[in-house]
Design a protein around this nucleic acid. Sequence first.
DNA 1: TCCATCCTCTGACCTTAGTCAGAGGATCTC
DNA 2: GAGATCCTCTGACTAAGGTCAGAGGATGGA
Lengths: 299, 299
Amino acid sequence: MDEGQVEQVRRFNRTVAERVGVLHDHYLGGARPYGQARLLWQIGDGGTHDVRGVRDRLGLDSGYVSRLLRALERDGLVAVEPHPRDRRVRTVRLTEAGRQERALLDDRSDALAASLLAPLNARQRERLTSAMAEVGRLLTASTVSLAVLDPDHPDAAHCLRSYAAELGELFDGGFDPANSLLPDPGELRAPHGLFLVARLHGEPVGCAGLKLPSGAPAEIKRLWVCPRARGLGLARRLLAELEERAARHGCDLVRLDTNRALEAATRLYRDSGYTEVPAFNDEPYAHHWFEKRLTPTAR
Amino acid sequence: MDEGQVEQVRRFNRTVAERVGVLHDHYLGGARPYGQARLLWQIGDGGTHDVRGVRDRLGLDSGYVSRLLRALERDGLVAVEPHPRDRRVRTVRLTEAGRQERALLDDRSDALAASLLAPLNARQRERLTSAMAEVGRLLTASTVSLAVLDPDHPDAAHCLRSYAAELGELFDGGFDPANSLLPDPGELRAPHGLFLVARLHGEPVGCAGLKLPSGAPAEIKRLWVCPRARGLGLARRLLAELEERAARHGCDLVRLDTNRALEAATRLYRDSGYTEVPAFNDEPYAHHWFEKRLTPTAR
DNA sequence: TCCATCCTCTGACCTTAGTCAGAGGATCTC
DNA sequence: GAGATCCTCTGACTAAGGTCAGAGGATGGA
């Protein structure tokens, strides 16, 4: 990592923490303490939520949230009720007054944004917002974490289901995992392979599997990125991670197959140094087969 | 102001407050409470500082700072001593242990920056840091405030001195305000004119004067931007502000003169719609004369 | 039916980050 | 030399954010 880049990021953190961070907290809070405002925001407008879910998303102590909720309730902003089917769980929703209060936070947030733009001319605003979009996108990308999970883990299963559902829509004649090679994703667990899941704020947003047959080339399967997490370079990152793990495992060749409907994927493979080769398996859904030679890594 | 832009800024604030802001505070703080860490940072390494100056820069209450200093002193990180010449004032400097602690904050800050860059590939890092630089520059630009000051105000006088000093270096044969037209900047006060000072974090970083002779075109004088505040579009902003004020005052023509050594300024005037005209005064330091027709504003 | 578990709430407690009103010493101005 | 002014410090106080250890009701499984 380049030292100048680290210094640049630090400078950015200082500027932004000062200009945005401070304002963000002490503007947005306004009359309401920041904790309450945060909670109000998180409860949002869309109907009823489990208290537990909200709490987990904010990462707060249960006692603390309980107290915050009581304060909001006292001001008539939220209604807390037991869950209809499990009366241990409590649910919370905004009242009309709560929705108004939240809209007020919205306005404050707009005012803050506007106060940043106001002193700038049109061209500067244009440049600022597009640079902000870029920073936001890349910071989001850097927030995504990769983890090796068992293919039966709920997050992994969610990705595999989404993968199959999406292919079902894209392929002529649909997609049925049972007809494809690797009908059982259980093969993608140690020692015969591994399964990687990408998560953003705890939500699974992508996956990729690697088969590591002994004495044969490694094979990449089930590479998928959730539609709303596209444009973050995530597929490329998953691919690079699998290649590195394959290389560390001693593989010097990695292969994969893909369907002609998956144009972006095919482009990614070509860009990443894969070359098209004759069919090396009889996957019924595949139209293209690729391979890439790996440079062995230390260890 | 474009609604999409406001929304973009808000989205940015959310992402950044989450990813940078939170980490910033709770990483950087570490063992030391954030207030102490901030103070430690501000005292910095460069020798001895007046407590008052440090306090003003952080915008904190004197009692609060006193307490923070005592805590730092207890931990042996700073030494507080009376000012040698005015024993009401106290000065503060880091001890060796304080310098080490501050270096530790530095490392934490680096670690935070590195943790943002780590998950990205080389191209993404490149793009992130340059977008951050752009955002930082433009947010800094939007932090600059303009104020009408009396030319005798210390901040205004500082700008005028710097202006003269810089011209003195740039012009063949130096620059002596007494030889120029408008030897007395006092003419740049109401009702005969006005003087605008740009400030960044309270420090004066630029200025521009406007003469408003009754029945004659307005005239722009003493436009200057401090070297370390260049590249923020500040000269352009000062110019636009003066033009707007002139137009509101009823002027439909604004004029100015400039020296050939000031190439960037000359370029700015041309870009901003000024056209070169024959000399309209006998300013000894001028080589170019410009004018611009204003479109009258409402009111 | 009973016990373990889950979820929420309450009370007690702690640290930070401030604010405010003087007290008290040092300096400046007349 | 006497105020007025300046600067720092102290004590008293407040609010927010948060943690921890149970209490107590609801549910699920043996």
